[in-house]
Design a protein around this nucleic acid. Sequence first.
DNA 1: GAAACAAGTGCAATCGGTTGCCATAGTTGC
DNA 2: GCAACTATGGCAACCGATTGCACTTGTTTC
Lengths: 341, 341
Amino acid sequence: MQQPTIYDVARRAGVAPSTVSRAFGKPERVGRATRERVLAAADELGYVPNPHARALQTGRHKTIAMVISDIANPHFFELIRGAEQRAKAAENTLVIVNAEESPTIERDQIRALTRSVDGFILAASRLPSQDLRNLAAKHHVVLVDRELDPLPSVAMDTASGCRQILEHLASMGHGGFTYCAGPPGSWMGAARWAALSGAAEEYGLRAHRIGPYTPTVVNGGAAADSALRTEATAIVAHNDLLAIGIMRRLTARGLRVPEDVSVIGFDDIFAADLTTPTLTTLGGPDAHAGRLAVELLLELLKSSPGLKETDGEESPHRLRLPTHLVLRDSSGAARPTGETA
Amino acid sequence: MQQPTIYDVARRAGVAPSTVSRAFGKPERVGRATRERVLAAADELGYVPNPHARALQTGRHKTIAMVISDIANPHFFELIRGAEQRAKAAENTLVIVNAEESPTIERDQIRALTRSVDGFILAASRLPSQDLRNLAAKHHVVLVDRELDPLPSVAMDTASGCRQILEHLASMGHGGFTYCAGPPGSWMGAARWAALSGAAEEYGLRAHRIGPYTPTVVNGGAAADSALRTEATAIVAHNDLLAIGIMRRLTARGLRVPEDVSVIGFDDIFAADLTTPTLTTLGGPDAHAGRLAVELLLELLKSSPGLKETDGEESPHRLRLPTHLVLRDSSGAARPTGETA
DNA sequence: GAAACAAGTGCAATCGGTTGCCATAGTTGC
DNA sequence: GCAACTATGGCAACCGATTGCACTTGTTTC
């Protein structure tokens, strides 16, 4: 059973195929009665336009790809939700592909889709900067949780967020903290460390860093063990998954959180308030980020539909979204260590 | 900057476009030297074949769509992972779309992709049976977490899994349980209740049912309150998200889990052992299910590539995967209620 | 040395749409 | 009553691939 085409519809409605095409795409170019006849015929046949046959001609697929560095990270749920809503509102299809934290897989996935979508939203991309630039030279790209000079991006405001963490730690009497780093390719991870270490002194805090770790719950075990050797009274983890793993290991080793060690994560994933103790973490408007990313991409498409033109002087949209520190039970006053009360 | 086409490659290699096409698709049909020249030219130009121009001719897109009823449910993580791996091994792209627990959205998403993919894997589809049959008449479809007569499917073995739960409850001295149902459209939910209530008597258990609830953590609150009115000593929830919500509410109301009430979920999501107490739940080989679903679909495609033929007599592949009860801390001996110890 | 055959390559039609251009018919203006 | 214009719809080329068919060559066979 073949899917009906415009030719089938045309025959049934007694018009030329071009008229059918116009009845859908440029309604003002066909007569009222004709259009209705065409639409009725299409309806009876269950005609669905073939977006790729169209794309062959127009270059527009009405499809956006969202590449997620790790789909198993709940952090991306709301991002996906928001993006999907916005895409649907613009009558675009959003397809999601997973990069499994691997630059190679990410590259392959992108390559497989280049001819099928109008643009890419890369969430927490692990690709080297140069690759991103090359990609952006030929396709429409919006970054999420990453910033790179000429590319449009949406990211949480790391600097102010990290200050909130530092402020919190300082006010609770901590003298320093150990940061458990995420994967080497993570721009967000680097930004977090830069912000934390850069401003630590201002708050009278010593910043120490260990890692990198692939940010999963199980990897939190090793991170916790290493962190303990630094004798820190506070641990800041690259994200909530790692933070949760760290808490589990600390508890398993007989330490109390937060009495002995405070633990702070990033992202405020849904599991953050299911743990014992519940996790203090830096959250942000994820769904909104998803919506904005799609919006940015749609704008790019509008300015140069189809493949990328050599425009170069597009306004550098670089959105920074406000974050908020969600205070829960995993962070508290520093354990007295001689001088501090 | 236009993407290069076979025509660009052909010009550069000094051959006809058809030869370029064959150099990729039917290597044995072109001379060795010519093929190498073509491949070199393609490489220099960065040529990527346009899968949809090809599909126009061949009907094969090498793309599979996976429709997930709720992408925010961690239960589907491993399913997606497994499916992705298997798809990649067969050089197919797997795209994921979200149905947000809504049959309408699910239908729209499917419709938007019908002409772009070779087949669909529907995970926990919420569509009515008749819609699924109609869809399957025109496209290749594999169901996951759902069974429907002529369609191939992959699902956990509910019957044996539920017996494990009943056995567990009976052995811990419970006299019955309250089941908190999932959404009305959930086949899996219906199957679970059927299996639990059908075999309850055998184990000397009274089965009670409340709901339906949309299975999220927050909805667990209402479910817990209703369940308490049934004075059950054990609650079995439609899935882990709901179970976690139930536990939170019970704890908030001053009840102890499992001393006062035992709670059991389904799916064994990653958060199930992060909660306090950790959650007893029925798990299964999710990643394997994903792989099998793709495999089933690939088999369908092989037998009739492109659009569905009127074959009808395909072998009814209906896979049932073994489950296992993961005993954790949320279930235990029944609270004494007069007669029982 | 001519016929038969195989390998390698090109030509042109085709898939399902879109769109520039032209043809027709009906309106309008004077 | 005729030119000029507008609204509508058809023709045919095109997008980027695939593929049946035909045409060259070179090789084999007798």
